[in-house]
Amino acid sequence: MTASTDYTAQEIIVAAGAKVLEDKKIVFVGTGLPMVAALLAKLTHASGLIPVFEAGAVGPPLSVGLPISVGDSKTFTGASYVGGLNAAFEMTQRGFADFGFIGGAEVDMYGNLNSTMIGDYPAGYQTPKVRLPGSGGASDMAASCERTILIVPHDKRKFSEKLQYITSPGHLDGSPNARFKAGMQGKGPYRLISTKGIFDFDKETKRMRLIQTFPGETVESIQAATGFELLVAPDVTEFAPPTVEEVRMIREDIDPLGAFVKRA
């Protein structure tokens, strides 16, 4: 297993995302890099992973390649059970989803995500500075999957003290039982994967905590690129770079057209 020396920021996210996924679990896979990571996991250590796509496909083998939409025809071929959006989200509410795997444009220290708007909420809601796509199913997965895995590209503005809008609720304000009190189900954010490292959320305070640094990063460099104070695990380790074979699989087998994993 030779370590790669030629991989991109997105490729290490995908490799890390795949490693976080556990075999034989049901994972609701959001659009984008989570789909690439789920496929890599399925082709490596987690052949028994059961992906579910919110447009309604349950447990497809993904043998006809990477879907480029969560409603893609490729998610339906060989699926065990297919319906529509209501059928899928009813499963998350019921407790069928061990994990939800989602992305966002902005995250705070409690793992709340914004994918709705940049601007002044609520006063500027109807005239956002930048209008983002909106929740899609991410807030549903955040509210009802048992645990969530988040992907957010790392920079100081995106790892923000205060979100401009909370689309997908994480640990809310971190207070005890905040999710339960708000009426939500599930334990909330479990891991966050950025372009700089892997984080979990402290048991007591629910704050984001650095557990692994990506090669070339340090605790200090990651803190410097974060808009709030990070907690740091006592035993931070370096995440091993993706192997040459993993990078080859991502480029040649999984996303040869660069639908989500850009070469640059």
């Binding site: 959006l85 929740s135 199913g137 909370i166 609720p169 809310l172 009426g183």
Partner: peptide
């Protein structure tokens, strides 16, 4: 959210004025 809109259409199809769902709760 996706489930919200889907459930709203479902309530419409069920002839109900509303439908209870586990969200939106806790966010904006």
């Amino acid at each position: 959210s996706n489930y919200n809109m889907s459930a709203r259409f479902k309530a419409g199809a069920m002839g109900l004025p509303f439908i209870p769902t586990r969200g939106p709760l806790g966010g904006d």
